[in-house]
């Protein structure tokens, strides 16, 4: 097990262009499940590939277990990686796929069988050892890829969107399995995803990336409840945070905090809200509509409500947000700023 650290890590693919990764400094904790979250093109995969040693950084340092590994080959970094496509060797059986890292790292031959069987049983694929990858389902392939990664007991696990090739139902169970797996082996894990739900559910901490820059590095709760800027605020949450401009600041509030004024007892800001669309999602409603009157007349906002209330399209309701749930961002930098009293009328 080891701590992964990057110092001002930068990757520029084409000279003169903006870097894919810019001055990223991070430090994982021992045995942590760290998630790199960002939209496509945010540099999260490039960052991971640099840590793996598949891409060489333009500037900056990578440390694994306190040692600078910039010049080391992937092999010498003692990491294991699971690719988005799993990258199983199609011509080898599952047994030989899992055994390949052992052979490549000259593990004594007599240990091979025992280790492969241990890794396979850990992931419940003991009965598949003689199959070829193309005879496996997506979920089984993913487990083979994980078994191949775990078999040589690496110090760091790197996972590049390992669930994105699975269908929605399988993804949920695979996610749980992965979490359980991480708890059991306790190896420092870096997980790349563009799926905020995965990031929230799995991560001990989340690194939110956009355009090669770290926007926020914090626990899932902090990232969700206290976003560092408007990008993080709108990237996490479904539907995303409502943002409305008011004077020098942008004010944000989560759809689930935007409720009927009569249900909120504490200090609140009240709006007139005309419902323009209602989406029924089984356990909840998504109401979208516009604010009426005051400074924010005509602003589009979304509310997320539990069942049990009736709303008519076209009707106007008295809605409100508790004051403590208002987030404030600077209008020019879009960064988080301190709460302040504002005129709403």
């Amino acid at each position: 097990m080891a701590v992964v650290e990057t110092r001002n890590l930068t990757k520029v693919f084409k000279q003169g262009e903006l870097g894919a990764v810019n001055e990223v400094s991070l430090e994982s904790r021992e045995g942590e499940f760290l998630v790199f979250l960002g939209p496509s093109g945010s540099g999260k995969t490039t960052l991971l590939r640099m840590i793996a040693g598949l891409e060489s950084p333009t500037a900056g340092e990578i440390l694994i277990g306190g040692k600078v590994v910039n010049e080391l080959t992937p092999r010498e970094r003692r990491i294991a990686m699971v690719f988005q496509s799993y990258a199983l060797y199609p011509h080898l059986t599952v047994y030989n796929n899992i055994c390949f890292p052992l052979k490549a790292q000259n593990v004594p031959k007599k240990l091979h069988k025992e280790k492969v069987e241990w890794a396979a049983s850990l992931l419940g694929i003991g009965h598949l050892l003689q199959r070829k990858p193309r005879e496996l389902s997506g979920g089984e392939r993913q487990r083979v890829a994980l078994a191949r990664a775990i078999v040589r007991e690496p110090s760091v696990f790197l996972l590049d969107e390992p669930l994105s090739n699975l269908d929605a139902k399988l993804r949920l169970s695979a996610r749980e399995e992965l979490e359980r797996f991480h708890r059991r082996v306790g190896t420092t894990t870096i997980y790349v995803t563009h799926d905020q739900v995965e990031a929230m559910a799995m991560g001990d901490r989340i690194v939110v990336l956009n355009k090669g820059v770290v926007r926020q590095f914090a626990s899932p709760k902090e990232v969700y409840d206290d976003p560092a800027d408007t990008f993080v605020a709108t990237f996490l949450g479904s539907p995303p945070m409502n943002l409305v401009e008011n004077g020098e600041v942008i004010v944000g509030f989560r759809p689930e905090h935007f409720r009927l004024a009569s249900t909120i007892q504490e200090q609140k800001v009240t709006f007139k809200f005309r419902v323009e669309n209602v989406e029924y999602l089984g356990a909840e409603f998504i109401l979208s509509g516009i604010l009426l009157g005051g400074k924010l007349d005509g602003k589009k906002v979304v509310a997320r409500l539990l069942l049990g209330q009736e709303f008519q399209i076209g009707e106007t309701y008295e809605f409100a947000v508790p004051e403590r749930h208002l987030k404030f961002f600077d209008r020019t930098t879009e960064k988080k700023t301190e709460a302040r009293a504002l005129a709403w009328a």
Binding site: P74, A80, S85, A87, Y89, P90, F100
Partner: peptide, 11 residues
Amino acid sequence: EIPEAASIDGA
């Protein structure tokens, strides 16, 4: 990814 996976596996 396949030769890349091999290089990470230590080949």
